[in-house]
């Protein structure tokens, strides 16, 4: 049973291994003629001012929070979807109630304007 999951871990290790090899190969094989100017941050030919470690729009933060909430709900639906045929109409009605609750939250979020980009 656990043998089934070994290839998954294997492929992960393999993928990251290949990626690491690629990265070091690129650093070793590549030309090395760096100058001070070449190593500055790219800013369309201008001299860069300040850093990029700056504040950004709170909208992105909101989207991330909403994603967390909805994604957890969706993950919760996976086991139900797999067992859907066995659970029958009782399971379906229970899940629909859950979705209605979820949707009321969703409508609240829309009405509050949390997803308004302008």
């Amino acid at each position: 049973m656990t043998l089934e999951y070994i290839p998954l871990v294997f492929m992960l290790v393999f993928g990251f291994g290949i990626a690491t090899v690629f990265m070091y190969l690129s650093e070793i094989l590549g030309a090395k003629r760096s100058t001070k100017e070449k190593n500055t941050t790219y800013e369309s030919g201008m001299t860069p001012f300040k850093t990029a470690r700056d504040r950004f729009s709170v909208k992105f933060y909101l989207v991330a929070m909403l994603f967390l909430v909805f994604d957890i709900e969706i993950v919760f639906m996976y086991p139900w979807a797999v067992q859907f045929k066995q659970l029958g109409s009782t399971g379906f009605i229970a899940m629909m109630l859950f979705i209605v609750l979820l949707l009321s939250g969703y409508i609240y979020v829309i009405k509050k304007g949390a997803l308004k980009w302008d």
């Binding site: 393999f14 993928g15 290949i18 990626a19 990265m23 094989l29 190593n39 500055t40």
Partner: peptide, 29 residues
Amino acid sequence: FLKEDLVPTAANPTFHRLAPIITLGVAVA
């Protein structure tokens, strides 16, 4: 592979290296 591999002095070198590894490793996995 033969291109010069630039890491800007202002960048964070560890994470700058780690990012492409994660992207490609996951895509392969």
